[in-house]
Structures are given as C-alpha cells and as structure tokens.
C-alpha cells in the first residue's frame, strides 16, 4: 500500500514538474489572443509615457499575471530590432522575429490604451482620506466597441464604504472610453471587452 502511495506521489510530482515546464515553455507561444491577463502597473505606465511619444523604440515591459510563470517579463531591446535587420536568419527565425514584433506591437497597444484609461479615471476619481488604512477595490467593466461603458460592477469592494462610494461616483461620471475604438477589433475583444480596474489606496501617510 505504502509503495503504491509513494509511486502515486512520485507520479504527481513528475506531473507537476512537467506542467511547470509546459507552462514556462508555452509562454512565448501564448499569443495575446489567448485569454491571458496583462497586469499594468503604475510605474510601468510612467515609463511607457516615453514610448507613447516615440513609438519607434519598441522597449516594452509587460508583467503577466499568470501566476505560475513569473518569467514572462518580456523585453525587446532596441538593439535586438537592429540585429534583426542587419543579419539574415533562416526562414523560421524571421517568422519568429516577425511574430515577436507583432506581439510587442499588440502589447504596446494594450499598454497605451491602458495608460489612457488609467489617466482618465485618475483625473475624475476624488479619493477620500483613508488615514493609514490600505484599501483595494476591484471594479469589472464591460465596454462596447465604440468605447461606451455598457456596465460596471464592484466585484471586490473594500471595507471602507466611502472609498467604495467614491469609486462608484467616479465610474458614474465616465460614460465613454472612446480610445478603444481605434484598436484592432480582435485585440479589443480579447482585452477590453471586459476588464478590471483595481483602485488602491495605501493611506494618506505613505
């Protein structure tokens, strides 16, 4: 019996190991068209501002939220693009590079639109004083391709009622996020049809 259990455990361990390997290796193939999450945090977006003005440099950093694959931070250095143009690779390499560039272009679009949405919401959200309390509220949003906000819902309210109310008030002020209408339709459906806004407060005293 014990032997059977040990071998079963070993089997699970191997399975776990294999699935980890699988998830790591499957990442580059994870096109944005799979339902993956891209968590855009504030600091990345402030870096991203430079890129918005100079889109010729595809220096994009995207943090993916797939928990098992923390290795998914993807950087394409400007020099890398230069290398591609300088040297001839075989066909599959070129294909790979093209898909990489396409991928980074899509991610850049997602980041750009996310940054716009972030700054538009920030500009109307009147954040209440929460003293030293750390608060997080998650809102789910449904958008029409025109950018119209079809509906929104507090999916994870914080413990502070006035914090939640301030977010509902801000969301009610916003009726359109029209910037998404310039997005590729596929990209829109995959990322902006339904997404979450995470409102955070670390308290007034940092």
């Amino acid at each position: 019996m014990n032997k059977a259990l040990t071998s079963l455990n070993t089997f699970f361990l191997i399975l776990l190991f294999l699935s980890l390997i699988f998830s790591v290796f499957s990442v580059p193939k994870l096109n944005v068209d799979e339902q993956q999450s891209i968590k855009v945090n504030f600091y990345e977006l402030s870096q991203q501002d430079d890129i918005l003005f100079d889109s010729s440099i595809p220096n994009v950093t995207i943090k993916q939220e797939t928990k098992k694959s923390s290795l998914t931070d993807k950087k394409i250095e400007p020099s890398e693009a230069a290398v591609v143009s300088k040297f001839k690779f075989n066909k599959s390499d070129i294909k790979n590079e093209i898909s990489k560039i396409k991928l980074s272009k899509e991610r850049e679009d997602i980041l750009r639109i996310s940054a716009i949405i972030q700054s538009r919401i920030s500009s109307i959200w009147i954040k209440p004083n929460s003293l030293s309390e750390s608060l997080i509220t998650k809102v789910s949003i449904n958008l029409a391709p025109s950018g119209e906000i079809l509906n929104f819902k507090l999916i994870e309210p914080s413990s502070n009622n006035s914090f939640n109310e301030s977010i509902l008030t801000a969301m009610n002020k916003m009726t359109f996020l029209e910037d998404v209408k310039f997005l590729d339709r596929k990209l829109f459906e995959e990322n902006f049809r339904n997404f979450n806004l995470v409102f955070k407060s670390s308290g007034e005293i940092e």
Partner: peptide, 14 residues
C-alpha cells in the same frame, strides 16, 4: 490561464 483578465491599477486620484 483561462480566468485571468486585463487589470488596470488606479493609484492616483484627482
């Protein structure tokens, strides 16, 4: 892989 969707963090208020 399936249930994660785009999340945008809002830290700054107006």
């Amino acid at each position: 892989n399936i249930f994660s969707i785009l999340e945008i963090e809002i830290l700054k208020g107006s």
